[in-house]
Design a protein around this nucleic acid. Sequence first.
RNA 1: GCCGGCGUAGCUCAGUGGUAGAGCGGCUGUUUUGUAAACAGCGGGUCGCGGGUUCGAGUCCUGUCGCCGGCUCCA
Length: 599
Amino acid sequence: MSESYEQSYLYRLRHSAAHLMAQAVTELYPGAKLAIGPPIENGFYYDIDFPEPLKEEDLPKIEAKMKELSKLDQRIERTEVSRVEAKALILDDSIPSMGGAVAEYKLQLLDAIPAGETISFYNQQRTDREGKLHRFLDLCRGPHVDTTKEIKNYKLMSLAGAYWRGDVKNKQLTRIYGTAFETPEELEAHLHMLEEAAKRDHRKLGKELGLFMFSARVGTGLPLWLPKGATLRMVMTDFLQKEQVKRGYEPVVTPQIASIRLYEKSGHIITFKDKLFPFMEDEEKETYILKPMNCPFHIEIYQSQMRSYRELPVRYAEFGTVHRYEQSGEVTGILRARGFTQDDAHLFVRPDQLLEEFIGVVELTKVVLQKLGLTDFKVRVGTKDPNSDKYVGHDDNWALATKAIEDACKQMGMEYFISPGDAAFYGPKLDLIIKDALGRDWQMGTVQVDYNLPERFELEYTGEDSKPHRPIMIHRAPFGSLERMIGLLTEQYAGAFPFWLSPVQISVLAIADRHNDAAMALADKLRDVIYDTRNLRVTVDDRRETLGKKIREAQLQKTPYMLILGDRGLEEGTIGVRSREDGDLGEMTVEEFLDSLGA
RNA sequence: GCCGGCGUAGCUCAGUGGUAGAGCGGCUGUUUUGUAAACAGCGGGUCGCGGGUUCGAGUCCUGUCGCCGGCUCCA
């Protein structure tokens, strides 16, 4: 969230809307324990521990209560207190939102406030018809709007479970999400935007455009790629393959399963064990696992012979399909599948080559993003969380690797942010983060520096001094995975892929039966044309349908060009060209059309 | 995995305890068509699956599977 947002009226308004909701909840559900309720990017939430589980059908009731409370024009007042006074207020049984019975989370929050920091409460109160005073008091840093009357344009969106302080070991609270705006028009526009975003959802478009499918009989998170989706994958892998060849990468191919011993050696078995599909055992009691990562295989290849300092860097690339047993609730179409293909490569480099190679990889990643038309991304440097024990390797290597990443970013003038705890278990990494249609962040491309696997596998090369030295590994995947990248591109382009990526680039529409042969011949001619590494991808619509219908369906399939062939064209040697974006472009010869493509 | 929601025809959806529906798609026939849906007819369903309540369940209860939103986790 931007600093300007955090200082905006809207931010305060949403924060106050969260309080208003909490006030409504404490009045409707005595015994509900308030935890935490901040504004967020598109609204606000409040985490509450309810005595009885809350249902979605309860939300309108809470909304109605909020409306009633909002109208009362309650002043929202700040008071600053000492820690002792704060504790007394939190435990004050005379205030409905406070008191010993519901103080559990607020007391913990109070304890978490560092000594010396101001402790403040916000109060809003009303007097009912019988003259009874109802207070709503909340421990809160603020700031807030002046009166509840300002909170008019809001909507409660959804319910979710959320662990107290984000830790699975803690109790799961009920989170109510809502949104609020300054004007009814803005609220309406936001809701409309959400509807529009849903139309771009890759799962919806993937089905409509025939890219991929899922089957309950195949299993959760295991996509089946349909011809058009499979074509899209090939176009993308061709493109990257070509870029990699230019940069000295060599292809390798490795199996889908491996003995568990390989992963014991790599350390994956410990850090990755709950992500693995169930093990397989053969008659000799050898245990195999379905591979969750490609790196150990590439390491085996590196290690299969003596390496000289002269041949480094070695760069092994593979579109490697891996399987990870993601928790059922985490699977999201092809953005988060259980089987997916990484555009993986591992670089084995000398220490003196690390920075240059790292920069080379980041540059390749930038080339890839540019070609794909992805301009809106964040660069995250994931570092070790000092409080976690999930990492392997020595601290000084971690420090070296982290420094290499930051140096590379600085040298390239790339803006980045540090995110402690987002490192791989074997080393720090640089990730590209892109938002999907629904505004969720996804990690796409990744570049990781690794001193640890070379250590574990005792990788070596012979140096100029004839002595053994240890290489450093760079793990990298510019797309991240084909699945996630295609899912994201589908949403970015709302299914209307740029010409070079479109699974079907041109559809030849025959006007009547008598034009079918000529349409086929035209398609064959176009298929001979090489465009951007591959032959043009052309289909023919020779069904007995009206032209209007054929055009409509080609438009809905987001086909970049429709070529219309009828009597006129046969007589004059031209075709009617229609583009997905600009409609009818008029008659032209095939050559003129190809020229316009730059083919 | 956890909290909440949703599963009706290939697709999108209607059906609020009393005989399972529409549009699109499919098939058949007619139409031979010039820039976003020709016309007619015909098929098509154990209402995700199992158990229960009821004279009677797509509808209520329960279990289970799948999907969706979120949390946690991740390419």
